[in-house]
Every structure is written in C-alpha cells, then in structure tokens.
Design a protein around this nucleic acid. Structure first.
Lengths: 336, 336
DNA sequence: ATGAAAGCGCTAACAC
DNA sequence: GTGTTAGCGCTTTCAT
C-alpha cells in the first residue's frame, strides 16, 4: 500500500504537490511536467488513497449503511441496487447489514455511527423490533432515514404507496368477479400492513356490491401465510380469493393450499404484493403487484444525503412508477 | 462523537491515561480513583473509539469482506451467519458485498484492499467470472480466501465435500430403484459442478446394474434448470429421476415439470444439493442434501485469519458435519 | 502513577 | 508553481 510519501519520493516532489494532483484540486497550479511525473509515479506504485487517513482528516467516512431485516429476501435485491447506484453517484460506498445483528437493545447502529464507520443509515426496521428500542435509536438529530417503515415522532421516512398496492390487488380480484376476498396481512403493528389494509378496504368499499372484509395479521413469512390460510379455510364462508401482503407469505399460502387440497387458481385466487424472480417459479406462477423498490432505494439515498447535509427532511412516498399488476397464473374468475 | 481528549478534559487527566484505561491495557498502572473518574467520564460522554483513528494508527481496519455472487440467495444465509459469528469471535467486523459489483476487470476488491477498508477478503467467485480476471486479483501474497471455489495456482480455498453431496443424492435415487438418473449440473467450468459430477459418477459406477450417465451443464439459476429438463425430456429414454446440483435450479426444474405436465415425484423424482427455507415451500417440498454452510463460513474466517497472520495455508475441505439427506416429498420409487 | 510527544496518511492554509 | 506545517483521533515510548 503505497502512500503519498512514496509517490512524492519517486516523483521527486513534495507530498502536498502529490495530494493536489491526485485529488484533482481544480485550483491547483502545477506545471504539466510535474503533474505527469506525479501521475506516472502514482500509477507505477498503484497508489490508492488510504481510507483511514481520509476519514480521519474529513471526520467523514463517505460510507452509508443499508440495514434490512433479511438480506436474502429476493425483494431486497432491487432495493439494494437502487441504493448502491444512488450512493455511487453521490460518492458514497454502501455497507450492507442485517437487522438481525441489530438486536433490540443491541447497539449495532450506535456503534456504526459512533465509531464513525458510517456517516448515515438507511434502515428498514424489522417486524419484531420493539418501539422502545427504536425510540432511543432515532432520537434527536440523527443521520438515519427509514425505508419502508415509520416510527412515531420520527420524521424522515421514505415509503412506497402501499395503499395503492392493496387497492390494486383487491380491484384485480373484484374485476375477476370475486366477492369473498380476504387479506393475508403482515403484523398489525407494522405500517406497511396497515397501509395495505387501507387500500384493501378502499377497494372493497368501492365495489358496487359491497364485499365483506376479512383480514389475518400474522406476518410476512411463509409460515404466516400457511397459518393464515388454514385459519381462513375454517370460516363458514371461506374466501374464493386472497390478497397476500408479501411474496414470501404468498409462497407459504401456495404450499398450504396444496396440503389442504385447494386448487389455485380454480378454487382460490392468490395475488401477492411485491414482485421478485421467485414469483415466476412457483406453481402456478404468482400474480403480483410490482412495487418500485429500485426507485425507493435511490430516493432513500437522496433523502439521506439531504439529511447529512443539514437539510430538513419530511416523510415522502415513492409513488412513481406506480404499483403495477403482473398477471400470471394464480388468479382466475371464481368457480361457477 | 466524543474523543479521548473530551474524556480526558472531563476527567481532568491526560489523553494517554484515558487511552490506557479504555483500551484495557493490562500493563497499565493507574490508581483506582483516576480509573473510575475516567470510566465515568467516558460513560457520560458515550465515548466510542474512532474507527479511522484506530485504523490509521494500526494500519489495520479489523474488517473482512465477504463477497458472494448473489446476496439474496437463501443458501448464503447460513454462510453469512458462520462468517459473522467467526469474525465476531476474532474481533473482526464483516463487510458484505455482492460479486456483481465486482465486474470482471472492475476493481472493487482491489480498492477494498488497496484503500485499507478491509484487511482480507472471503470470496465466492461467481460462475461467470473470467479466469483471467481472477489471475491478477489473486496474484502473489494476497489476503484472500476462496470459499466454495478454487482457482488454478491459488492456494487457500475452503470448499465443501461436493463429491459426497453428488454421491449421496444419487445413491438416494438408486436406492429408490431408479436406473435412469440424470444430473442437472452447474457450468462445466466451475469446480463445484465438476465435483458433484464426480460424486454422481461414483454412485452410478458403484450401482450393481450400471446405470447410464446423463449430464447437463447449464448453470445454477432457475432458468438453467428449466432448460435442462426440457432437454432431458427430449431424450429417447428420458430419466425417471434427476439430481439437481443447486436448489434454485431445482425450483426451475419443478416449475418446468408443471409446464411439461410431468408429475413430481410420480413420474420424476428430484433431489437438490443445498438446503434452505425455500425447499420446504415448493410443491412438492424438495428432497435435498443439506451442506454445512455455516461451518464453511466459520472455517473460512479461521483460514483467512491464519493467512492474515502470516501463516502458510493450504486448501481445505469442510466435511464435517457430513452432507445430510433431507427427504421430503419430491422423490419416490419409479413408476412401475 | 501520570503526562508529553511522535507518528500513522491525508488535506489545506500559508509561506516563498 | 512548489514546499512546509498543523492537525484529524489514536496508541505507545519515554520522561518524570
């Protein structure tokens, strides 16, 4: 690892001259000759500016953290892409971390920030994080932006239009002729679940023949989907279609339907919110509502950037491009 | 962000005294009184050692990078856990990155190391990375350990017992009475695929009535699985069972089987190498060979640690715990 | 038992 | 146009 000193020695100039040239200081006046000697020397030594040196000098790391509940969730691939591209453009590097490591009461984020490893945090809070754990974490002027989540009293969330997503999915089923439509939702405590329920209700309310409401609130994991379906099928009048608020949960629903001997889509239509490669590889392939997660990531970075530069920021909803229905084969008109 | 100076000022002592106390310098002689004043001050200021300051001082970041082809692959969840726990024990922090960002010819790893952001790298090379791109990257004394992959002339790989995995999967099918067993494998250029083929052949060769060999080499993605199955079903004598070298590929196989109207397991048995939650949520649930990925991660960290401390390291195979068959519902005896 | 000072790599204000 | 220097936060040798 060559240092500025090494380059300077090789080029026969001072350290500061090297610094000026290599950091593209516009206001620097250096003769073309020395400039070339310097760049040549740097190249031959394969010089790279030392991260710690810069971070120390600037009291800034130029790193932001992206923390999500589960990195292996296929849905997050798009989010990550958006965040990474946005960060790149703004000269930041992204540090990926799992929220699991952020044990409630644990101090992962506190350390990341406190030790100066990262300048800011993009955080999607997991479903099972206690509100109190967040209270202290999000106190006061704090270089954090919440994605896909909100916290009471905290300003600086970027979310998706989950109301529209719930509405769109429900309308699709209504359009096919279903009237007994259930919502298999996330935990009642999560904002996204609440929003999707709002959209679901809106669509039901709007339907000419008002359809009854039926919601389960078990979470976004496959197991939650399984549990919900079992519960719904115990109803006196079970649904002929379900909106599932999450794709992983929908995969569970599909699995449980097989176990229960319910044919999809003949006896039960299934739409899921969020799209990912997994939706194309279930049987039947899942009809989904694709959400703009890439754009959410980019916008999250923009918002965090603004916050890091002292701007006041408000909560925003990324509604463009609008949620889009991806009709595959898990939805059909109800059986006659 | 309080510094040592802040703590020192508050405690009314020198910076070096604070440093000694807070870094638990065993050989430091400090009076209990000052020690307490110092720890109190540090606590009240919520002092955290600055990362850049330490890294600069030690010329060491205490960070290692884990780079995998696709973070959202459910199979990697276990690997990550192993790496993170191992790293934690050794006082390292893990930086997660996707190999996608490591464009061939791109210099992501070079930068990570060259800028001193990380001390070492655990790298699983993707299937589509050109050998030449790796040549320069793995040159000379290099703080890198390859996981689940090898490179000619490079010493320091930790791999799994993929031969055993291929053998075990094949033997399971032979035991059920199948004789026409195909292997839906990864790219022929990848080490893991080659190893799994060896195991497959071993098992076939050992079978009393030698079964014919049939292998496709299209890769580990769902699409590769789909393509392979279509190809195999075009054979004069199509297989009654397949070993699929990867779980995602197997998901594609299952999907394509539905499209082709082939019932699993009645008409076609499917075993996949690697296990993850997704295997429990396909239909039918996938029989798999579970590999010790957690242990691979831990061992990878150990190996990297040794390399970082100047030890000569050799290639190793993590064979404990041994690959284990997880029988679910995608395998059955062949139709009469 | 405690403090002063040097130096890790870097940048920028200030000489010359 | 180029060099000298101070200082970011930290540890450690050397004084006292």
């Amino acid at each position: 690892m060559a240092t500025l000193g090494d380059v300077a020695a090789l080029a026969g100039v001072s350290i500061s001259a090297v610094s000026r040239v290599l950091s593209n200081d516009a206001s620097a006046r250096v003769s073309p000759a020395t400039r070339e000697r310097i760049t040549d020397a740097a190249k031959s030594l394969n010089y790279r500016p030392n991260f710690a040196g810069r971070a120390l000098r600037f009291s800034r790391s130029n790193v932001i953290a992206l923390i999500v509940p589960d990195l292996t969730n296929a849905v997050f691939a798009e989010l990550m892409r958006g965040v990474e591209e946005g960060a790149l453009e703004r000269g930041y590097v992204v540090l990926l971390a799992r929220a699991e490591d952020m044990q409630p009461g644990g101090e992962m984020i506190d350390r990341l920030l406190g030790e100066g490893r990262v300048d800011g945090v993009l955080l999607q809070v997991g479903d099972h994080v206690a509100q109190e754990a967040l209270d202290s974490m999000l106190e006061a002027p704090n270089p954090t932006v919440l994605v896909n989540s909100v916290h009471p009293g905290f300003s600086g969330s970027v979310t998706l239009d989950d109301v529209a997503a719930g509405r769109l999915a429900t309308e699709h089923l209504l359009g096919l002729g279903h009237t007994r439509i259930a919502l298999i939702n996330g935990l009642e405590t999560t904002y996204t679940a609440q929003q999707r329920a709002v959209g679901y209700r809106e669509a039901l309310g709007r339907a000419s023949a008002a359809a009854p409401e039926r919601i389960t609130w078990h979470g976004y994991e496959p197991r939650a989907g399984r549990m919900s379906l079992t519960e719904l099928m115990g109803d006196a009048e079970p649904p002929t279609a379900v909106v599932v608020a999450n794709i992983n949960s929908a995969i569970g629903v599909l699995g449980e339907a097989r176990v229960l001997g319910i044919r999809v889509p003949e006896e039960l239509s299934v739409v899921a919110v969020h799209d990912a490669w997994t939706a194309e590889n279930t049987w039947p392939p899942l009809t989904t509502v694709k959400m703009p997660l890439y754009e959410l990531g980019r916008h999250g970075v923009d918002t965090l950037y603004a916050r890091l530069h002292g701007e006041e920021i408000a909560d925003t909803v990324v509604a463009e491009p609008a949620p889009e229905l991806r009709v595959r084969e898990s939805t059909a008109p109800p059986a006659a």
